[in-house]
């Protein structure tokens, strides 16, 4: 790869990044079940959980089910971590978004444990979440994730999760940054 390569047109870059994200997200059936999607700004992701009747726990309040909130946080953490982990490989071309979309999926991090704090009752409306990788090593990673609804400064729940990272594939280890 020449360092004097002209910059790529912005549409090409956007198209590649969005295809990579879409491939990663659409591979997980449970993300579809919850109805989640991810907004991307550069490398920053915001997960969106549009309100749906089936996410309700207590129909009398009504409030989001604690399990739906926990699942939302966990999925946001998994995708956020995988995205941060594979981003350099999508950018360098080591991972091809079209191949990923075609079913050659990179492996996802495995959850070791998650601690969810419920801060406020989840209202029957859309929820948003962002994950922050607080520690990313070769074998383990830690992620903090926060969910909110109408007001960014009044989160409904937060979580810390630990993950076991996927081992690098046998043939492309040279592109892997050490932790």
């Amino acid at each position: 790869m020449s360092p004097h390569r002209p910059p790529e047109p912005v549409q090409v870059i956007k198209q590649r990044r969005d295809a990579a994200l879409q491939a990663l997200v659409s591979a997980v059936p449970y993300i579809g079940f919850l109805g989640l999607h991810f907004d991307r700004r550069g490398d920053e992701l915001t997960a969106v959980m549009p309100f749906d009747e089936k996410l309700i726990g207590n129909p009398e309040l009504p409030a989001l089910h604690g399990g739906a909130t926990a699942a939302f946080l966990e999925v946001t953490a998994v995708i956020g971590l995988a995205w941060a982990h594979y981003w350099p490989q999508f950018e360098s071309g080591a991972l091809d978004p079209e191949a990923v979309a075609g079913g050659q999926l990179p492996r996802l991090p495995k959850t070791i444990g998650i601690t969810v704090d419920y801060l406020r009752s989840g209202l029957p409306r859309d929820a948003y979440a962002r994950a922050e990788v607080t520690r990313s090593g070769r074998r383990y990673a830690s992620v903090r994730v926060e969910a909110w609804q109408d007001n960014r400064t009044r989160p409904i729940a937060q979580a810390t999760a630990h993950f076991r990272m996927p081992l690098p594939p046998r043939d492309t280890t040279q592109g892997e940054g050490a932790a």
């Binding site: 591979a27 997980v28 999925v75 998994v78 996802l108 495995k110 998650i114």
Partner: peptide, 13 residues
């Protein structure tokens, strides 16, 4: 409810 398409394991969520 699958969370890992590679193995078919249900999602932690």
């Amino acid at each position: 409810l699958i969370g890992d398409p590679e193995t078919g394991v249900m999602s932690g969520g």
